[in-house]
Amino acid sequence: MSWLTKLLPPKIKREQGVQRRASLPEGLWSKCPSCEAVLYMTDLENNQQVCPKCGHHNRLGSRQRLDLLLDGEGRFEIGAEVVPVDSLKFKDSRKYPDRLMEANQSTGESDSLIVLQGAIKTLPVVAAAFEFDFMGGSMGSVLGERFVRGVQVAVEQKMPFICITASGGARMQEGLFSLMQMAKTTAALTKLSEAGLPFISILTDPTMGGVSASFAFVGDVVIAEPNALIGFAGPRVIEQTVREKLPEGFQRSEFLLDKGAIDMIVDRRDLRDQVARVLALLQKLPAAA
């Protein structure tokens, strides 16, 4: 512990409700991984973990994401009762249940997707957010089922569905079951469309593999956070295959916008307002005051 941290009263060291991220150094000060500016933690928190100097978006946990997106009141969690099983008795260097347990201990979550029914500026929605720190936000059976249950609630209650992705892709420990979640999650969205309800897909760093190549890009509106890594194959795999250097900014949000793959890039600090505006337009509701 540095002399500075020792001097601080415990209350300031940890803001209540905000989980400390493993990627951020502890204490009062933080160094931006992008511009290396030394930042006051409170400033960073006030800026939703976006660097006030350079705009670098640090990764966020799923609950923090949903906290920032949704109104404070009237939230219900969907699908929390669904929890993982080790159906293949999968074992690599470690057993799958051990990995699950460790992920559970470090994140406090039972799998990598949290789904909440709530509202954005009083407009009712169902919103799902990936927990990247839970096994790389990988998509397995539980994620697929929670996603589908979320969509079903949205259809039944006639609400838009929003999903914020952060994932390395499919969960290998569930073998082909994980691949099938791509088909399952995406198929569920056909019901949302039939009901005339919007699906807003928000892609954050990183959104790769089976998550990118399933529901992520079938959003009615696809939004990305600045400089997020988004793509199907990982940059290293591509580099090894084509044996050439990847272009500058390859698979980043700005690159995708330029290639016509996404609708817009939205700064996290404007995201809630922007999503509310888009939803109001799609649902032919009056503009918010």
Partner: peptide, 9 residues
């Protein structure tokens, strides 16, 4: 499609 997956409740 909806039947794909193994989990417990």
């Amino acid at each position: 499609l909806m039947g794909y997956g193994r989990f417990k409740e």
